[in-house]
């Protein structure tokens, strides 16, 4: 069962259409990347999923049911613009936000203690948020987002402002939650994080969905038949007739072919002619390349 099924959802602000008939499904337990340039409509869509605003058209199914405000208790949301009550103590803050999600005071306290251990936050409870560093505040915010053990976790740029050590701690936890069955909607501009974390992605541009699916398939679909070759310098062919790609750096050459067949055929010929290939691999486009290509050519 898909955790989230978005069906032809639109949202208008006056004459401006922020989300334009977007449809996609988010399967249970995956880490799903929601990508798009600034102002593409990601935040508007996320707000609709959170029941902060309502879609003007279309519908959203949450675990097979029509999305209602009551589902907020099963969704955790870490907005891009972080916010905590600066003058409140960490413990009080987490208890308050947990209770707002419908937990009773006792359960909240137990879970807070568990998370203090996991994220190495011992002794933070009595500190005021304004006395914490930005990275520390980020951890508090993360705990507030997951304290009610949501089925769907929406993370908007969760690692911004974190040092590499803390980024790793948080990544590990996100992956663990995902393995335990939490569905994660991950919105970011950091494409290397998308490659590392996400199984599926959706790309939104100017309010429209332009791309959706498993990363592997998308990469196959958008590949340019680029192949990396490294020849033995004594037995290298003449490449003047080949299309040498500009990505080529020292220690090899990147060639572009029309298809996999032409690449294989060419390689066969080179081998028959006695050239020595030391290294050979297909180069798939990075999500970053695909992103830029789509956004700039749209």
């Amino acid at each position: 069962m898909d955790t989230l099924a978005i069906k032809k959802v639109s949202k208008h602000y006056g004459n401006f259409t922020a989300v334009n008939s977007v449809s996609f499904d988010v399967p249970r337990g995956v880490i799903f990347g929601l990508l798009g340039p600034n102002g593409a409509g990601k935040t508007s869509l996320i707000r609709i999923i959170n029941s902060i605003t309502m879609a003007d058209e279309g519908e959203i199914l949450f675990g097979g049911e029509r999305l209602r405000r009551e589902h907020q208790a099963q969704i955790g949301y870490l907005p891009e613009e972080r916010g905590l009550y600066k003058k409140m103590k960490v413990q009080e803050q987490l208890e308050y936000l947990g209770q707002l999600k419908g937990l009773d005071a006792k359960t909240v306290r137990q879970r807070i203690n568990t998370w203090y251990e996991i994220l190495q936050m011992d002794g933070w409870g009595s500190k005021k948020v304004q006395d914490l560093s930005k990275g520390m505040q980020q951890k508090v915010q993360f705990v507030a987002t997951v304290i009610h053990e949501p089925r769907l976790l929406i993370l908007d740029e969760p690692f911004s402002g974190l040092d590499p050590v803390n980024t790793n701690i948080l990544k590990t936890e996100i992956k663990r939650l995902s393995e335990e069955g939490t569905t994660i909607l991950f919105s970011t501009h950091r494409m290397e994080q998308v490659e590392e974390m996400c199984e599926r992605i959706a790309l939104i541009n100017r309010g429209k969905l332009v791309l959706e699916g498993p990363i592997d398939e998308i990469k196959q679909k958008y590949k340019d038949y680029l192949f990396h070759f490294k020849f033995d310098p004594a037995y290298a062919p003449d490449l003047s007739d080949e299309k040498v790609h500009s990505y080529t750096r020292g220690g090899g050459v990147i060639l572009q072919f029309e298809s996999l067949q032409t690449a294989n055929f060419q390689m066969q010929q080179w081998l028959q002619n006695g050239y020595l290939i030391q290294d050979f691999r297909e180069i798939l486009p990075s999500v970053n390349d695909i992103f830029i290509k789509i956004v700039t050519t749209e």
Partner: peptide
């Protein structure tokens, strides 16, 4: 503070 967005994702 932007906390309002967190709160109204609960109430």
């Amino acid at each position: 503070n932007r906390i309002v967005e967190v709160v109204i994702s609960s109430v």
